[in-house]
Amino acid sequence: MGPLSPLVTTLRRTPPLVFAMAVLATGLVVSSSVLVKGVRRGNDTITVTGSSTERITSDFVDWTVDVARSAPTLQASYQELQPEVQRTIDFLRQQGIPADAISRNPIKSDKSEVRDSRTGELQSTTFTTRQQIRISSPEVEKVAAVAQQIGELVGQGVPLTINDPAYTYTRLSEKRVDMLAKATRDARLRAREIARQAGSHIGVITQADTGSFQITVPNSTEMSSFGSYDTTTIEKDITAVMGVTFRVD
């Protein structure tokens, strides 16, 4: 952060400070940014933005693969699907995924028709039956490894659509409280230094505004004013922002 003195624009009596949460529009992870419109003695206030960032490790994974079979009749597509679903489940079990972590979503079927473009006469009908297999587990690393290996089944002829695992953090509510407290402390340190440059002192907190949380891939610069939650990586960065208004003594 550059010299602090330019941030304090005036020491005369001016309207109370300030709207600090604009940091979300300019860069939530730029922890050095501080918005200040004025500092003065008496009952005036100063509002600054504090932030805190930590690296967290996902503790739960939700992953799906879709198995599908097509045939001229609905019955045939269903019958051909069943052994492929079983082969997929057997593979997951062989890789160490427990049975209680594996579930099957309801079977779905679609019908497609091919017609003569000139006469509209029906030429063929194809039924596609599919079933989604879901893996939900706290064994994040194990499931991630299996997701890298399941492509072997495709090589063996199993008609799979492999979706990306979604990695999440289940203790986010607990972490949120801790992160906000750290962001508030960060705001106090900044406000104290700004006030010191102006020959003033920081008093009690008069208002605190919580910004949106950003959960991103490590070292990401992406952000959203509504908050973000990346599920593509096991390791994540979580950033919290607080706009805190202090009385200036």
Score class of each variant (00 low, 15 high):
residue 203 G to Q: 00
residue 213 F to K: 06
residue 195 A to M: 09
residue 240 A to D: 01
residue 236 K to E: 10
residue 144 A to D: 11
residue 165 P to W: 03
residue 243 G to C: 05
residue 169 Y to D: 03
residue 189 L to E: 14
residue 136 S to W: 02
residue 104 R to T: 15
residue 155 G to S: 11
residue 104 R to C: 14
residue 170 T to K: 09
residue 6 P to Y: 10
residue 59 D to G: 08
residue 168 T to A: 12
residue 37 K to H: 13
residue 126 T to K: 00
residue 49 T to D: 05
residue 3 P to H: 13
residue 86 Q to S: 15
residue 57 T to C: 03
residue 37 K to D: 14
residue 191 A to D: 00
residue 222 E to L: 07
residue 99 A to R: 08
residue 4 L to Y: 07
residue 111 K to I: 07
residue 50 G to Y: 07
residue 88 T to C: 06
residue 21 M to P: 15
residue 244 V to P: 01
residue 15 P to D: 10
residue 10 T to A: 13
residue 161 T to L: 09
residue 1 M to C: 12
residue 157 G to Y: 10
residue 2 G to C: 02
residue 194 I to E: 12
residue 29 V to G: 14
residue 222 E to K: 07
residue 224 S to K: 03
residue 163 N to D: 02
residue 145 A to T: 08
residue 80 E to R: 12
residue 226 F to W: 04
residue 7 L to T: 05
residue 35 L to E: 05
residue 233 T to Y: 15
residue 181 A to W: 05
residue 115 R to V: 09
residue 131 Q to C: 06
residue 29 V to N: 12
residue 210 T to L: 11
residue 5 S to D: 08
residue 40 R to S: 15
residue 145 A to K: 10
residue 56 I to L: 13
residue 46 I to P: 09
residue 85 V to R: 06
residue 96 G to T: 03
residue 123 Q to K: 06
residue 221 T to G: 13
residue 220 S to I: 03
residue 89 I to N: 05
residue 111 K to S: 07
residue 57 T to L: 14
residue 64 T to F: 13
residue 205 I to T: 06
residue 86 Q to K: 14
residue 246 F to K: 00
residue 97 I to T: 13
residue 65 V to D: 00
residue 56 I to F: 14
residue 220 S to R: 02
residue 188 R to D: 04
residue 35 L to Q: 11
residue 232 T to K: 04
residue 86 Q to F: 11
residue 19 F to I: 03
residue 71 A to Y: 07
residue 46 I to C: 07
residue 96 G to I: 02
residue 105 N to W: 13
residue 167 Y to M: 00
residue 223 M to H: 09
residue 90 D to S: 05
residue 59 D to A: 14
residue 134 R to D: 12
residue 248 V to W: 02
residue 74 L to Q: 15
residue 99 A to K: 05
residue 36 V to Q: 02
residue 119 T to S: 10
residue 156 Q to I: 01
residue 195 A to T: 07
residue 33 S to N: 09
residue 211 G to E: 00
residue 142 K to F: 13
residue 91 F to R: 05
residue 107 I to K: 07
residue 247 R to C: 02
residue 52 S to E: 06
residue 42 G to V: 05
residue 219 N to S: 14
residue 71 A to I: 01
residue 128 T to L: 02
residue 21 M to F: 11
residue 136 S to E: 13
residue 63 W to E: 00
residue 28 L to P: 08
residue 155 G to H: 10
residue 242 M to V: 07
residue 201 H to K: 11
residue 98 P to W: 14
residue 185 R to P: 11
residue 162 I to Q: 04
residue 75 Q to W: 11
residue 147 A to V: 04
residue 226 F to G: 09
residue 81 L to F: 01
residue 204 V to N: 14
residue 38 G to S: 14
